[in-house]
């Protein structure tokens, strides 16, 4: 018995777990997306999504919202990450932690705080639904953009910047020709961590009184209506978008996802 004990057997429970609760749900999702309520194969759910102007509108709206939120996050996060990475502040570690700490506070509570502030500034939240969603999501997802950017910028080889300057490049040229291209892995990783939640996190919209649906809200409403078939189709379409993103970003910086690197 002792002889047959091998360390690799320790992995069996986890492998079984992954098959049961990661692979099986996807199989079931696939099955439900392509069947109707009587269990027969159908393409109606797929066709329904792409022919209904409401659902297509939702897709376009979510893509627009996600795009604006991602750009906003990138524009705010890049200078912060750049300054943090290049600074010689004594308490740099503390500053980085301050920018990551919000991730550890429940996001609904943080949104409650933001909502109160926006209420005070705008008077009535209902007047600016799109703007509120952009602000809310930027506020919520910003740390997820800062962290991967910081991680690539801090590893950037300083001698390359010096070399560029020695060769006659100005500050601006050095930044756009050296720093930005070399930080692309961080940009891609940050974008993939912001774009997808921006398409699906409908709680931000709900809490800030934006009643326009995004892709996530569609799943939520089909769930409330016990419509598993159409809900599965939306989930599958989202999975396809996520799959494309994952292929594009490769496996760069995986460990920084959701702040894993800092803990």
């Amino acid at each position: 018995m002792k002889k047959t004990f091998a360390r690799k057997y320790l992995g069996i429970p986890y492998a079984v777990f992954l098959v049961l609760f990661v692979i099986a749900p996807l199989v079931v999702l696939f099955y439900y997306a392509f069947t109707n309520s009587t269990g027969h194969f159908t393409l109606a759910n797929l066709a329904g999504f792409f022919t209904d102007s409401n659902t297509i509108g939702t897709l376009v709206y979510s893509l627009c919202l996600a795009f604006v939120v991602t750009v906003a996050c990138l524009l705010i996060a890049y200078p912060i990450a750049y300054v943090l990475a290049r600074s010689k502040f004594k308490s740099k570690a503390v500053l980085v932690m301050l920018f990551v700490m919000p991730m550890w506070i429940n996001f609904t509570l943080r949104l409650t705080a933001l909502k109160e502030i926006l209420n005070l500034i705008e008077g009535n939240l209902a007047y600016y639904p799109f703007l509120n969603s952009v602000i809310g999501m930027t506020y919520d997802f910003l740390p997820f953009m800062i962290l991967p950017l910081y991680n690539t910028l801090v590893k950037l080889d300083g001698s390359l910047l010096e070399a560029a300057q020695d060769l006659g490049a100005g500050r601006r040229q050095t930044f756009f020709r050296i720093t930005v291209p070399l930080s692309m892995p961080g940009v891609i990783s940050g974008v993939s961590m912001v774009f997808l939640p921006a398409m699906t996190n409908y709680v931000v919209n709900d809490m800030l009184y934006n009643s326009t649906y995004i892709m996530g809200s569609l799943i939520g409403s089909y769930f409330s209506a016990y419509d598993w078939h159409n809900g599965s189709m939306i989930a599958l379409i989202l999975l396809a978008i996520i799959g494309v993103f994952t292929l594009l970003s490769g496996d760069s910086e995986e460990d920084t996802r959701r702040g894993g690197a800092l803990l």
Binding site: G11, Y14, A15, L18, V19, F21, V22, I23, A24, P25, L26, V28, L29, Y32, S192, L196, P197, M199, T200, N201, Y202, G216, I219, G220, F223, W228, G231, S232, A235, L238, L239, I242, F245, T246, E254, R257, R258
Partner: peptide
């Protein structure tokens, strides 16, 4: 294992939750 392990990491939580609900509950 490392490929399957990535699925819940990159997946949207809405999709993870919804698919688990269908499998386990429905």
């Amino acid at each position: 294992v490392s490929v399957v392990n990535q699925v819940p990491v990159v997946n949207a939580d809405v999709v993870t939750g919804f698919s688990l609900c269908i499998l386990l509950v429905v």
